[in-house]
Amino acid sequence: MIDKSHLWVVIIGLGIGSYLLRFAFIGLVGGRQMPDWLLRHLRYTAVAVLPALVAPLVAWPAATDGALDPARLTAALVTLGVGLVTRNVFGSIFAGAATLYALLYLLG
């Protein structure tokens, strides 16, 4: 359960912060050239942050109280594998979900 006292601070703070990130260059920098080192780091934000969010959820799922779960681990690997091979987001979500349900059913 979430502590409600800080919820609105998060919603509004995240809203303002996200807007400023979007506005930063197009609004303030205008036509000026961005430094290479900055763009080079920004290129990797998504692949740097998202795996760090997902990895602990895969390794220690809350649903099994943090115990490594063969069904969930396999489903995660299948999703990643299908995504790497096909580059198709829907296809890999479907493959991952199918694997998860099949294994949850088989492993009881």
């Binding site: 692949v47 489903a75 999703t79 990643l80 979500i93």
Partner: peptide, 8 residues
């Protein structure tokens, strides 16, 4: 996790 892995 599945959705994020698929997006990633």
């Amino acid at each position: 996790p599945i959705t994020f892995l698929a997006l990633m």
